[in-house]
Simulated assay, not measured.
Amino acid sequence: MTSGSTGSTSPWFVRPPSADHAARIFCFPFSGAGASAFSAWPAVLDDIEVCPVQFPGRENRLAHPHYGTYENLAADLVPALVPLLDRPFAFFAHCAGALPAFETVVRLTDLGLPGPDCLFVSGQPAPHDASRDPMLTMSEPELRAEVESFIRSRGIEPRPDMIDLGLAVLLRDHAAAGAYRRAEPVAVRCPVVVLHWRDDPGVSLDDLAAWRRYSDAVDIRVVDGGHYDFMDAPEELLKLLTSWR
């Protein structure tokens, strides 16, 4: 194995993926967020490199055109992934980020490319149930309040311009979520590990059960914490994320 970086930095990744580790886990953020959602995570877990994915239209890609739909996002991401599929890999995706992650798995399969060894989905109902998300019925003022509440939950006193920027990103992501439709489940070849956060009032175990229709190997696990606690890299979560190796 060649030591060092795999080459020039793609805009899809906040740092150049390394060739020094045995496996990779690609991490998909939730609506309104970017790769910084994983900034508290270690860069490597038991020789698995953590590779946060940076969607266009936010953070250091704010000037890049928004992806528009999850299918477009998957189609645009795959070419950036192809050089990095030379070793075992998994996907981790939180909340609505699980939907483009799933679409990326489907696209890799359709193109005859290697798929992940495991798909981890966190706090998100199955794709064919995505249109039932209560957040899709929220008004712009309600979404603004969500942005402000989230920023405060991270220990930051939000400035108006911070809220405006966060809302602008969320509204575009929200439109993509509202446009997403997958009428019937499509099975993937990899195991799917579904994470339910014990203190998450917005997503129940029953909401997650339909993921069992997406793979012959689905494991639904309950982990301690609330909806956004994955950002703090709790030890229980990190142990699960190395269980596929």
Rank of each mutant, 00 (worst) to 15 (best):
R221F: 00
A210P: 03
L205G: 12
L195R: 01
I220H: 02
G226L: 04
H196T: 02
D200A: 14
R213N: 13
W211N: 00
A217I: 03
V203H: 07
A209R: 15
A210G: 03
H227E: 11
D199T: 04
V194Q: 02
D207N: 09
V222G: 02
R213G: 08
Y228C: 10
G202M: 08
V194W: 00
R213P: 04
R198G: 11
P201C: 08
I220K: 01
A217W: 11
V193L: 05
R198H: 15
P201G: 12
G225T: 07
L205T: 11
L195H: 00
Y228K: 09
V223Q: 09
R212C: 05
V192W: 03
P201R: 07
D200G: 09
D224W: 02
L205K: 07
V218A: 04
R198C: 06
V222K: 08
D229R: 13
G202V: 09
D216H: 12
V222W: 02
L208N: 01
P201A: 11
G202L: 04
S215G: 14
S215W: 10
H227G: 12
F230I: 05
L205H: 09
S204P: 06
S204H: 09
V193P: 00
L205S: 10
M231D: 09
D216S: 15
H227R: 14
V203T: 15
F230K: 01
R212Q: 10
P201K: 11
R198K: 15
A210I: 04
L205N: 08
V218I: 07
R212L: 06
V194N: 03
F230P: 00
V223T: 14
W211E: 01
V218E: 06
M231S: 12
G225A: 06
D199L: 14
D199S: 13
H196N: 08
D216Q: 15
D206W: 02
P201I: 07
D207H: 11
G225W: 00
D219H: 13
W211C: 01
H196P: 03
L205R: 13
R198P: 06
D216T: 12
Y228D: 15
R198D: 15
D219N: 15
L205M: 10
R213Y: 13
D216F: 14
G202Q: 05
V193M: 05
W197F: 14
P201N: 05
R221T: 15
G226N: 05
D229P: 05
R212V: 03
H196E: 00
V223A: 05
V192N: 05
R221S: 04
A217G: 05
A210R: 10
A210F: 06
D200R: 08
V203A: 11
R198F: 07
